[in-house]
């Protein structure tokens, strides 16, 4: 109890921006400074002809990685949240189990399999991985939207109807704000997982931070693998800490606890 308390206090004392800035700075250093770390990577792969991945600049790879994850996230958030809202309305209630199952199915389907199946239809490149990410990222968002909306106290919803709020007013002014922290947690999980999963796209011709990893595996060059993995990890940590920041802001604004 006292431990928890002291952790909470130290968290409150730390400036909110500390972690995102720290991880962001490290990400920036690793993306821009990779060519200067040759000595370090030489130590990992003393015998390789080349130890720094140079087929593309890291910031270009980072940009493409962000684009894939970003587009996939935007689509999943819109689809996932709308689906969650639709099936918790009176009219869409019959579809609630179906949507829940479909979303679960999306995540039980391995992304690699999705890629393999998508390539013949969509061709090589960025599209297959985007589709795979969308399917894979949908579940946490749908599930948390459902949970968040269903957890809103029945008395509060009844009161909002009884006071004469329209269903839309109830949704926008009461249900969504109260469910927001849970929905945001789902988005956070979805995006963070997808940052790592997007690397798989490199196997199907999508150029992103997965490239150095795949190239490293193919050529037996561990230095490449470490460069790709390190950058992806730092990107995931940066984005995750940004979500943490967002959640804390939301929580302090709601301050329902």
């Amino acid at each position: 109890m006292s431990d928890q308390l002291s952790v909470m206090q130290s968290r409150q004392q730390a400036p909110m921006w500390l972690w995102p800035m720290l991880w962001g700075a490290l990400l920036l250093i690793s993306v821009m400074g990779m060519p200067y770390a040759e000595a370090l990577f030489r130590w990992i792969e003393p015998n390789a002809r080349q130890v720094i991945y140079t087929r593309a600049e890291f910031y270009v790879l980072l940009g493409r990685h962000l684009l894939v994850v970003g587009v996939a996230a935007a689509v999943t958030i819109v689809v996932g949240v709308l689906a969650g809202i639709a099936v918790t309305r009176e009219r869409g209630h019959d579809f609630l189990p179906l949507v829940g199952q479909l979303a679960s199915l999306g995540q039980t389907f391995p992304p690699v399999a999705v890629l393999a199946l998508a390539v013949p239809v969509l061709g090589f490149g960025t599209l297959p991985i985007m589709v795979a990410l969308m399917l894979y990222g949908l579940l946490p968002i749908v599930r948390n939207t459902l949970t968040g909306l269903q957890e809103v106290d029945a008395d509060i919803k009844m009161a909002s109807h009884a006071m004469g709020m329209t269903p839309t007013q109830t949704l926008r002014q009461v249900e969504l704000p109260l469910a927001a922290p849970v929905i945001l947690a789902g988005i956070r999980t979805s995006v963070t997982i997808n940052i790592a999963t997007a690397a798989l796209g490199a196997t199907m011709g999508a150029s992103n931070l997965g490239d150095p990893i795949i190239a490293g595996i193919v050529n037996g060059n561990m230095a490449y693998v470490v460069q790709g993995a390190l950058t992806i990890a730092l990107l995931a940590l940066t984005v995750d800490s940004l979500f943490e920041l967002l959640q804390r802001k939301l929580r302090s604004r709601l301050s329902t606890s």
Partner: peptide, 20 residues
């Protein structure tokens, strides 16, 4: 129904106040 409810005051046991 919506206009009707705005004309009628309603109080419930657990208040149903909006926590946010």
């Amino acid at each position: 129904p919506v206009k009707l409810r705005r004309r009628i005051g309603y109080v419930i046991q657990h208040t149903g106040l909006f926590p946010h």
